[in-house]
Amino acid sequence: MALPDLAKKPQRFTGGHRACAGCGFPVTIKIILQAAENPVVVGCATGCMEVTSTIYPYTAWRCSFIHTAFENAAATMSGVEAAYRSLKRQGKIDKDIDFIAFGGDGGTYDIGLQALSGAMERGHKLVYVCYNNQGYMNTGIQRSSATPRGANTTTTPAGTHLPGKPQYPKDLTAIMAAHGIPYAAQASMSHWNDLYRKAQKAFAVDGPAFLNVLSTCRLGWATAPEDTVDVAEGAVQCNVWPLFEVENGKWKLTFKPKKPLPVADWMKQQGRFKHLFQSDNTELLESIQRQVDEDWQRLLELCGE
């Protein structure tokens, strides 16, 4: 689909929300909601997206929306989807409706992982979207299990003894793919066409789908607001955030950088890694690059590249 045509479809998320200037997730929401053909019911975990888009009495949602708590967007939407199946079976509802759960990486990778795993395993027809900004940004930039190694966060502050977060992020997309769900994919807000196509596939499958979408937090990543798209693009171009999909168990790379950038180039774009370049961290930077290269090689093998 060409963008001018995409813009002809009515939008289901409005301006007037209170996300920071230059925030990434409204773009992620926009692309995904534009890909839905049916009316949607959205569930949302507690987090930036929820608190900035529904400050009473102002809601930025033009579709049915529910938020209950932090760790349970997948469970809440399991109930909504079960209600739909029940009422449809009883002939009390005739429409086709799509169901989406949004959670940040806090609500998805960490506190909400159990509810997410349960919902995916039970097979609800539900698209779960992690708008992944690599940290607990709503509470003030704490580390999550999606935060990259070396990042300065308020619970892994760069100090004289520790150079930011000591651990690598976990591979949640692979964990979700291991649930044997019909569709799991990793995408980035910067590559809208790739994300749009993946969202269309996610809505089309008969069962659960999972999308892990890199969505810049310019506050937490300490980047200029206008660089939001560029820095997400950088993560893809240096293979820190490869774009791929797992469809019915088949892994497929959906984007291959022509010449991958050094990871350090991407890190230099962001204030959260600034400390790594102010003193000698050659060894750490090398090991991060090595890890990214190894992960990339493994992914290429999985994708038969």
Binding site: E71, M77, G79, A83
Partner: peptide, 15 residues
């Protein structure tokens, strides 16, 4: 926790 979350979701959905 998910039992109550799903029950709340279903009741709010209209079931």
């Amino acid at each position: 926790h998910s039992a109550m979350s799903a029950t709340v979701g279903a009741a709010a959905a209209g079931a």
